[in-house]
Design a binder for these strands. Structure first.
Lengths: 302, 302
DNA sequence: AATGATTGTAAGCTTTTAGCATACAGCTTG
DNA sequence: CAAGCTGTATGCTAAAAGCTTACAATCATT
């Protein structure tokens, strides 16, 4: 079976035709003229045809050489297009982006972001999977998983995109009563709704700006495993609760909830992007992560 | 400065896309699957993009891979066209054939052959140079020189195409007188026209079928340096002459001339094609030489 | 006419790449 | 659970690419 054609030789031949000499072709291609001479000779050997007539101080193309050159020019032009098309796709990504995010964070932050992403990159499609079960990146169906909280497996390739604060909130119509709570110890006896979707939902560590820490064990007569549901319960006067800022930020601004103990900070959590193992990042993934990072920075700055 | 793209990798990638697996691609390309794997990986490295998703027992092409593949398929198709176009030109030659031939032989044999060549190969043009001065093949302006006679320089790349005989001829209207000439020695006293275009035009060696040789020094009262002119003079009764068979064949058939001493042979001469030094023979040259060879064979056989 | 400069090629060598054989990880199938 | 298959990694060998040097041939200059 005949050996495959060596397409790399085409560029040596084309350079000679275009520059008019082996010497100039060598200069253009940054190789020695012996290489150009040899490569073209081998091409002629492979074709069993003379492509170039080597006259004194002048190289001219034979008739068959001219025909072959037209093909070469076309091939090399399209090859250049092919390679640059790929680098173009970094700026103008294409394809379907498949993202998973936790329910709460997804609804509050990712869903509006996806709409903006589609506006920015009309050649992309998005498939957004919301859920609190950790989707398996290994299955290869996903481009990106957004993790909120604390990563259990530090071996994953995670990229931190932002942080979220946790706020102690209560219903707005109990402002008078809640104004008297000035210290975490004042929470004793106050109704508290525990979020059983997280581990150890009653043990909390408060911190002031002076780095004073108080660890408080709260008591709860009501526990729910859904943060949005807890938020609704708080609004209905069922008690206080600790919820992530991205979930309650809007209700605080609208006066439906009020923050209790605003001078005391609770532990922050990470917002991370977890990516499947891959050597290269598709433009669509890079673009989306960058938008999410910017959105998180804007949210924190407001 | 960035290195030139390696176009040979395109065929490995395309084969994987088209066959659906690295293993099948390796089989198609007659290499090991490790080679295909490595070549595609290097292509992805060069592009900084993932072209293929390696799933279990199944390879799929990414969105950018699909775009890149379309380019590859086009490039590889045109490369195949380019290489086969060149082999096609061996059967259907193109271009301008530049031939030189001696005046006499050119007019008698080459001119009608050129017309037939043009009919056979309409994509070819011909430039025919007739003359008895040896044109310089070294100048690169000629594809082929036809030499008739004896080559002076055996170092030239010559290809023998045929031979010509030399015939002693006389005017047809002197048949009765010429019939009495049975031996070369009988030529003494007979008017002979010397051809001063050749060296030593009076010294001739005759040979019979029994390999009996006689060397005769003829005398001449008329000498002309043009074989066609000598032929005319012979027809007009100016004497006998020794002329190449390709020049008198027609007149002999038409009864205008008669051959004298037909049982005695004179030295034959070669008809050769002299080619400029070149590794490969253009289709047009090969085709013309073959036609000339066939024409010479037909001439001898008639 | 002689000499210097330039171009393209040949030859020998070094560096780089292609390709093979082997082994292994991971997954599917029986 | 074992066998089989696929794709990748690694080390090695062979082949190719490319460099350096030298030379032949031609042209331009003196």
């Amino acid at each position: 079976m005949s050996k495959a054609h060596n397409l790399n030789r085409l560029s040596y031949f084309a350079a000679v035709v275009e520059t008019g000499s082996f010497t100039n072709a060598a200069e253009r291609l940054s190789v020695t003229k012996a290489v150009v001479s040899s490569q073209v000779s081998q091409l002629e050997q492979e074709l069993q045809a003379t492509l170039l007539v080597r006259n004194t101080r002048k190289v001219s193309t034979t008739e068959v050489g001219k025909i072959f050159y037209e093909h070469c020019a076309s091939i090399l032009n399209e090859a250049e297009e092919a390679f640059s098309a790929l680098s173009q796709l970094t700026e103008n990504p294409i394809g379907t982006l498949r993202v998973t995010a936790p329910n709460d964070y997804g609804k509050a932050i990712v869903t509006p972001l996806v709409a903006a992403f589609r506006r920015n990159y009309p050649d992309c499609q998005v498939e957004l999977y919301l859920g609190d079960n950790h989707s398996d990146l290994m299955a290869g169906n996903l481009d990106l998983a957004i993790r909120v909280g604390w990563l259990r497996d530090s071996g994953l390739l995670a990229r931190k995109l932002g942080v979220f604060k946790q706020l102690l909130v209560g219903p707005a119509d109990k402002f008078a009563l809640l104004s008297h709570i000035k210290h975490p110890n004042d929470l004793v006896g106050i109704d508290f709704i525990a979020n059983t979707a997280i581990s150890d939902p009653l043990q909390w560590q408060f911190k002031t700006t002076g780095n004073k820490r108080i660890s408080v064990k709260l008591k709860s007569n009501l526990s729910i495993n859904s943060a949005p549901a807890i938020k609704e319960a708080v609004k209905n006067g069922a008690g206080l609760a600790i919820l992530p800022d991205y979930l309650v930020q809007k209700d605080l601004i609208e006066g439906k909830l009020i923050q209790v103990l605003p001078d005391w900070q609770l532990p922050e959590g990470d917002i991370s992007a977890v990516l499947p193992a891959s050597k290269f990042r598709a433009g669509k993934v890079t673009a989306f992560i960058e938008m999410l990072r910017r959105a998180e920075k804007a949210r924190i700055d407001s």
